[in-house]
């Protein structure tokens, strides 16, 4: 047990006295940026794909769009996110000669990836809304897209908030792969501390704890939102 106390002491020295915590804070910030940007981009893309997926297909344009969307979803759900990240950073970006920072590439790829998953969640949400809502809006002379955006999608979003919370948690956890392209997150910060002390036990333990606490907090917030939404069903 004595050696464990010593390890903690060493960790504390680098973490606190040598300023390791600033790296951890940066990592935490980046983790949040990537997860939040990923979710926001994901919701936008996912909503668009879901609307295309449920729209009537007797015209040619929706059919073509739907095929493109299916390819998109197939790619992003059919390959690991690490692979997508590497492809984007080391293949696509050099091809286009673009100079994006690792952090913004991560945000983009996380967004594209979660878009594929959110689209499936969203499709379920839209299909769970009573078709009469759409009919009523159409009967008033609103177009398909306007009825969708003003009436159906808001109700669908309400139905899927808990599932979206889970998606956010998945994103938070997945951020631990961004070091593959050189973005710094929690993992990078703690392995820096570890390699400075030649001692990885305590840093990784603390890292695990931070992730668990983060996820627990988010789960709590999601539950609170869910409860307040349920309350609004009965508001007077």
């Amino acid at each position: 047990m004595g050696s464990f106390a010593k390890k903690v002491e060493k960790f504390w020295e680098v973490f606190y006295e040598h300023g390791g915590y600033t790296r951890v804070l940066t990592g935490l910030r980046n983790t949040f940026y990537i997860a939040v940007a990923g979710l926001v981009i994901g919701i936008i893309i996912g909503t668009i794909i879901a609307i295309i997926a449920v729209s009537p297909k007797y015209k040619r344009l929706p059919r073509i769009l739907n095929r493109i969307c299916r390819l998109y979803v197939g790619f992003f759900r059919g390959s690991p996110m690490v692979v997508q990240l590497l492809l984007f950073y080391f293949v696509l970006l050099p091809l286009f000669g673009s100079r994006m920072t690792p952090l913004s590439v991560c945000m983009l790829v996380f967004g594209l990836n979660s878009g594929a998953y959110v689209s499936e969640i969203m499709r379920g949400g839209i299909m769970s809304v009573d078709p009469g809502q759409m009919e009523a809006a159409r009967a008033l002379g609103l177009s398909y897209w306007v009825s969708m955006l003003k009436v159906v999608v808001p109700q669908a979003v309400k139905n899927i908030i808990p599932t979206l919370g889970n998606e956010f948690i998945v994103l938070i956890k997945e951020t631990s792969i961004v070091s593959f392209v050189g973005a710094s997150d929690l993992y990078v910060a703690f392995s820096y501390i570890g390699s400075n002390t030649y001692e990885f036990m305590v840093p990784y333990l603390v890292m695990a704890l931070i992730y668990i606490v983060l996820v627990a907090i988010i789960a709590l917030i999601v539950k609170m939102i869910e409860r307040s939404l349920r309350k609004s069903d009965r508001r007077n």
Binding site: D130, G132, Q133, E135, A136, A137, R138, A139, L140, G141, V151, P154, Q155, K158
Partner: peptide, 17 residues
């Protein structure tokens, strides 16, 4: 043309949101 034709449904279909 639908704007000039009202419609009332069996299930009311008021917008819940």
């Amino acid at each position: 043309h639908r704007r000039r034709m009202g419609m009332v449904f069996q299930q009311f279909n008021l917008f819940n949101n």
